[in-house]
Amino acid sequence: MNWFLNMLRTSIGKKLLMALTGLFFSIFLVIHLLGNLTLYGGKDLFLSYVDHLHALGPLIHVAEIGLLTFAAIHVSTGLFLFLQNLQARPIRYTVDKRGGGRTIGSATMPYTGVLIIIFVAIHLSNFHFIDHSRQTVFQAIDATFHMVPYIFFYIAAVIIVAIHVSHGFWSLFQTLGANHPKYMPAIKGIGFIFSLLVAVGFGFIPVYVSFIM
């Protein structure tokens, strides 16, 4: 176990944590999105999906604890790396230009990350930590998404998540050492499409719920 902790103390070790937890969240995003797509099938389909989910019982708690731990790891390691990186250049450049490597996604990882965590907190308090005996999840969604400012907030948030994964997705492969001249362009392409799907898939839900449904 010693070697493992020792490894995690290195820069690449910490990045490994980021990549694995990031991968986990990316997969989570896919599942979450697939689930949410049931909304487009109407209220009943969605509620049956929710019921199925809740029927998993203790499993769902395991998943929640897992998510929470991974979130803790991802967030704390991410912030630690961010602070370390700040320290690595105590004096900044007067003129700082990009050479064409950085993207909006890569340049804003810690910031989008923090915004995501704030969003997730609000998101959970809106839909998760509510008294499920008084309203169904659908009712909560329906009510929330009829507040126009919240629609904007929600759309902005998913765009931020999309920006985060626009860099995060290919980056995690790079971190895990999977960079091959033949496949890397495909990975980057998938990352791009993935972040687009996240933005559109999640982002269209409030519009759909409040204006079309």
Binding site: K15, G99, S106, Q174, P181, M184
Partner: peptide
Amino acid sequence: NCSNETECEAECPKGISISNIARLN
């Protein structure tokens, strides 16, 4: 720490590729 920003590759005068970084990882 490396955040895969790839600015290094863009500025390297010898065109060293970041695929080397993946290999290092």
